[in-house]
Design a protein around this nucleic acid. Structure first.
Lengths: 203, 203
DNA sequence: GTCTATAACATGATAGAC
DNA sequence: GTCTATCATGTTATAGAC
């Protein structure tokens, strides 16, 4: 999967930071997980640990940004789609032993007040998710303000519910959040999907 | 405020972990912030850093558990109350320079897969918040399943929106989440408050 | 209960041979 | 581009004087 050394470092960083946060991952951890010596890490990333984290976040942001549109593609009603997003998330999380969470959320809370360069990286990812989701819902016929509001709330609700679900090892928070957000939007139709989705790059 | 040394250690831990997470705070940081030498930390907490974090989380959990009921006390309609919770949170966050967040969320994502003793501490706090909030809403006339669902979703939505708001330095996620959750519950009356609220201890 | 000194090891980062 | 050795500092935790 990971061809170049550079790639495997970024991949390893995303995977480790997803589980242990930013401060909890050491350069030695990264080197071991990437199968490369420490020197290689600094050769490819002269900015050191912060730069590796930056690229891992941007990279993971791209992958996870397509998650909501991909699930919503299967629905023609907004309320059902919202329900579907949370139900799907609950299944994924239970299947993966409550570990399925992207590194962005794990790191965002930790660095928001401490490492400005990484706060802005998480900000860019969230912004790209919201812009991309809003554009997607608009392409399905919602007007822009609603599309943006629903996308923002969906992401916030998902991240918060993931946090509770992981801590409690229980999918109830995901189901409760979906059940609270979805019903209001039952009956709002989603137009057939048109065109090709474009990932919004966070970098 | 903090009388005993023990107390000031726990207080300092909560404040530091709120901003820097668990791994990002060192024993030296704690000693300096508490105004006590390292030796005192181990005298009062033989379990070391983990035990300090455990007590700080449980302690902060107690304080923040009353937040939702306190705000909701001012409302007689469930939809308006939910809106009020998020609007209030948005004001608080803007007033504090986007730093107002409890340590529980900051730490929860970091330790869920790494420090079982702290995962269970965050689990206990979330459980206490949900139990306490459900009991509160039930005392205001909602039937138990709805009370529990709304409380769970409210906490998940708040934590997720806080995360985005801090990273983006923008209250929009709080307002969008409130606007998405509240309307469905407009018209559901909250009965007058009866009796005294009891904090549910997380320990 | 307070505080200093220190053990034993991990940390991010660098230099430089290959 | 790969890898080893190493620096200076920081890490959790302990021992033991006061």
């Amino acid at each position: 999967m990971a061809r170049s050394t550079r790639e495997s470092i970024v991949t390893a960083a995303a995977e480790l930071m997803r589980r242990k946060g930013y401060a909890g991952v050491s350069m030695k951890d990264l080197a071991e997980a990437a199968g490369a010596p420490i020197g290689s890490l600094y050769h490819h990333f002269r900015g050191g640990k912060v730069q590796i984290a930056r690229e891992a976040l941007a990279n993971a942001g791209l992958a996870y940004g397509l998650l909501i549109p991909t699930v919503v593609d299967g629905y023609t009603d907004l309320g059902a789609a919202i329900d579907g997003v949370f139900t799907q998330a609950a299944h994924d999380m239970a299947d993966t032993g409550f570990a399925n969470m992207c590194p962005v959320a794990s790191v965002a809370g930790e660095v928001a007040d401490t490492v400005e360069e990484l706060r802005s990286a998480t900000c860019d990812v969230f912004t790209a998710w919201i812009d991309g989701g809003a554009a997607y819902f608009a392409s399905r016929g919602l007007d822009e303000p609603l599309a943006r509001q629903v996308t923002t709330a969906l992401i916030a609700g998902l991240e918060g519910a993931f946090l509770l679900a992981r801590a409690m090892r229980d999918v109830a928070p995901l189901l409760a959040t979906g059940a609270t957000m979805a019903p209001q939007y039952r009956g709002i139709a989603l137009a057939p999907r048109t065109g090709t989705r474009v990932a919004v790059d966070a970098r």
